[in-house]
Amino acid sequence: MALEIINLTKTFGAQTALNAVNISIKKNEIIGLLGRNGAGKSTLMKTIVGALNIEEGQILFDGEDITLNETSVKKKIGFLPEDNPLYKDMYVKEYLNFVAELHQIPKEKVDIIIENVEITPEKSKIISQLSKGYQQRVGIAQAILHKPDLLILDEPTNGLDPNQIIEIRNIIKEIGKEKTVILSTHLMQEVEALCTRVILIDNGNILQDCAVEEFRGKFGSLEEAFKKATTKK
């Protein structure tokens, strides 16, 4: 699996959200996508998954142009948006069965995914009754149910308590052993715990694309490195 983003540009009116972005991603990487609020992270992720149209540039997935092969490419991608848009009036297993049907996956696979993300005790509950941590697990379950080659997670631990954060990180780490993961986060500890590579975006431009150790560089922490890189001179 390879993802190639070539001169990708996206505008909203007079604002340039992505400015000629170029990124190359290979198999089995967990990439930390970093940037301030409004830097272009969510726009980039939504464009990769096809939720936003490509205005200029090109995205290739396994050599296929995603605009020419939307259905086949989307089958290979899992996505958990920041707002985790679950059908909260549905029961957990009912919802995941619905997702399996959309992907034309045998419903027997649902129980395997439920076990993998450790929500078996919650599978007969209505989603709205779950804690935010368990709702995030359901969101991850729907994103990996069809065994995608690329998993894109937008702030997957936002608003969770410390124990829930650790649990979600462990799930992501296991997924990353077999899949490629692009992870958007504001938590530098998350990058330290999960990622081998950092892509830093600011005002729609890629400022750095390097190994975590290189990004940290001479600074004592990733927080210091991030602050230095994104502070206007």
Rank of each mutant, 00 (worst) to 15 (best):
L44Y: 06
N158Y: 07
I6T: 09
E214N: 15
I206G: 05
Q135D: 06
G35E: 02
K107T: 11
G35K: 00
I77T: 05
I199V: 10
A211H: 07
S124F: 14
L183Q: 03
I113K: 09
P106A: 01
A143N: 01
I23C: 04
V21Y: 07
Q189H: 13
E55L: 09
S131A: 05
V21Q: 01
S128F: 10
K227R: 10
D209A: 13
N37A: 08
T47G: 01
L222Y: 06
G57M: 01
N7D: 13
E56S: 11
H146L: 12
N19C: 05
E224R: 08
D149Q: 15
I54A: 03
K227L: 11
K147E: 12
K74C: 04
T67Q: 14
E82Y: 02
F98I: 00
L153T: 10
T180H: 00
D202T: 11
V110H: 06
P162H: 10
A20W: 06
H186D: 03
T16Q: 05
E101Y: 14
L33T: 09
I199K: 06
L60D: 02
E118M: 10
L52Y: 14
K173C: 03
E29R: 04
E29M: 05
K75Y: 06
C210W: 05
N37R: 05
I114Y: 03
I175Q: 08
N19P: 09
L96F: 04
S42V: 01
T16A: 03
L52M: 14
I166E: 13
T11D: 12
G176D: 01
R216Q: 15
K76C: 08
N69E: 08
G139I: 01
D62E: 11
L96Q: 11
D161K: 12
N116W: 06
K109A: 12
K227T: 14
S42R: 00
H103W: 15
G50N: 05
G50M: 05
E224W: 07
D62F: 02
E56T: 13
I105A: 03
S131E: 04
V138K: 00
R216N: 08
E122G: 09
L153M: 13
I199H: 05
I25G: 00
C210V: 13
E178Q: 12
D111R: 14
T9Y: 03
Q142I: 10
L96M: 09
K125L: 10
I23M: 04
I112A: 12
S131D: 01
N7L: 14
L150F: 06
L80P: 07
L194H: 01
L60V: 00
I30Y: 02
G133V: 10
N163C: 08
Q136Y: 00
T67I: 06
N205L: 12
K109R: 13
I165F: 08
E122S: 13
G217A: 08
K173S: 11
Q129G: 07
E101C: 09
D62H: 15
E167T: 09
K232I: 15
K76I: 04
T47I: 04
A193E: 13
K227N: 10
Q135T: 09
